[in-house]
């Protein structure tokens, strides 16, 4: 080591903050440029207009796009529908993941626990389109779902909102199961024993001890399922029939009317920010 290097090392050692700054400045710069930069460009471009005749962008500062998004019932309906679908997907995933994660972490023997974990994780490696089209095949007229449901007098829901909810719930389920599984696994046995010891019956222990302790995990999982559903635009194209979600409104406008697409895409961003703020108030993010 040459003396200047050594001096630098010494200086850095004595100033932990400087050391930290030097260490994270490169990734921070990348984050600022690539991530926040893109967001800023998005926001700025939402204030431009597209010339209706030439389809060129007029760099004139105005708020027409936002006015359109907020007043046109088409966009309001799409936004509400998207919100409803994302909420339904999150709820369904939470309801399915809760007992599954509990079983995996607390009931299953170590061997079957590993198998179940692999079973939950494997679909994550399969391509998104492959899974979506697999569902398209299953849901289509005369498909597997029809065939299974026929003896019970039912049939495939066809292509529409229910199909979108089903497929999105399937796609994002692992993102709900994994944090819940970890939370259940880390739940100390002695806390459950202590609750019973103090006179609590199992249901009371569940409500008073288990639920509060796994709540942060449910919220972490819901951030995934909710925001992933909110931004989805492929599933709805494949199994949604004529259903429109914010994602495909944006996607179809990107080439036609970029400023309007930018204005529309501010909606899910705002919804997510609002959701995160609401979640933060519950204190669930403190341990993340």
């Amino acid at each position: 080591m040459t003396p200047p290097v050594r001096r630098l090392a010494g200086a850095l050692h004595r100033r932990p903050r400087l050391r930290l700054a030097a260490l994270i400045s490169a990734p921070m710069a990348w984050l600022a440029l690539a991530y926040l930069g893109a967001l800023v460009v998005l926001l700025v471009s939402a204030f431009w207009t597209t010339n209706e005749f030439t389809s060129n962008i007029d760099y004139l500062w105005n708020t027409d796009n936002f006015r359109t998004v907020l007043t046109d019932p088409l966009y309001r309906n799409v936004a509400l529908r998207t919100l409803g679908i994302a909420a339904a997907v999150t709820l369904i995933d939470a309801v399915i993941a809760f007992p599954m994660a509990f079983y995996m972490a607390r009931v299953a023997r170590p061997r079957s626990r590993r198998l179940l974990l692999v079973a939950v994780l494997t679909p994550l490696w399969a391509g998104y389109l492959v899974k979506a089209y697999a569902w398209w095949v299953m849901l289509s007229h005369g498909g597997v779902i029809d065939w299974i449901a026929a003896p019970f007098g039912g049939g495939s829901p066809g292509f529409g909102i229910p199909a979108v909810v089903i497929v999105l719930s399937y796609l994002w389920l692992p993102y709900m199961i994994l944090p819940l599984y970890t939370a259940f696994e880390q739940l100390p046995d002695s806390l459950l024993a202590a609750s019973g010891d103090l006179g609590a019956r199992p249901w009371r222990t569940f409500v008073g001890v288990v639920l509060p302790l796994v709540k942060p995990a449910v919220i972490a999982g819901s951030i995934f399922t909710f925001s992933l559903s909110l931004g989805d635009y492929l599933t709805v194209q494949i199994v949604g029939g004529t259903t429109q979600m914010l994602g495909n409104v944006i996607a179809s406008n990107v080439t036609l009317n970029l400023p309007l697409a930018a204005a529309v895409s501010c909606v899910p961003v705002l919804i997510i920010v609002g959701y995160l703020l609401a979640v933060r108030r519950t204190g669930a993010l403190d341990n993340l």
């Binding site: 100390p188 024993a193 202590a194």
Partner: peptide, 10 residues
Amino acid sequence: NTVFQDYALF
């Protein structure tokens, strides 16, 4: 009632 070895406080 039990006092647990790891206290098991909630």
